[in-house]
Design a protein around this nucleic acid. Sequence first.
DNA 1: GCCTATTTGTACGTATGTATT
DNA 2: TAATACATACGTACAAATAGG
Lengths: 86, 86
Amino acid sequence: MDFDPDGSIDHAGPVPPYRQLAGILAARVGRGDWQPNRAIPSEAHLVQEYGVARATVRRSIAVLVDQGVLFVVPQRGTYVKGPALP
Amino acid sequence: MDFDPDGSIDHAGPVPPYRQLAGILAARVGRGDWQPNRAIPSEAHLVQEYGVARATVRRSIAVLVDQGVLFVVPQRGTYVKGPALP
DNA sequence: GCCTATTTGTACGTATGTATT
DNA sequence: TAATACATACGTACAAATAGG
């Protein structure tokens, strides 16, 4: 576990914030906080919630997109990947 | 062709600079400007040469790493991918 | 061993563009 | 028309690892 599942970012420790946040967001997906094929909060919202720069939020999201956890629809939002819609 | 092979970045056109630069760098590799398993110029050098921000250079490099054209050795440099060394 | 320069890694803030609602 | 949301780009700063003298 290289992140705090409760959701606070440690700006001092050895794990970079973008990886902590990726872990936190992945945990929220796993916990069902956000449902498949539904948008997660906007980048601006995550900036406010976690106290990091937008570039850091975007980098975290990029990690999860790469892992197949999320997908991004430009100008729409970032979504939780789930089974194909019928 | 969505970039200028001669190497100038168009900051006005529809193709984002990071993709133009990725194309330019790939062309230089293809042309043999830089040899396999040899370092390309540093990020700072490319910033100077092409008049873009370092973030843009890094993004261009990331594209080419993703395409298998380059690879990065942290704290050492960015290299042209080539056949495995004997 | 020590200091310095080089190079990539990470993060911040800000601004503008584009598409959708 | 205006607000929202992601895309791109700029500049700046500091950290960490490496290499050389």
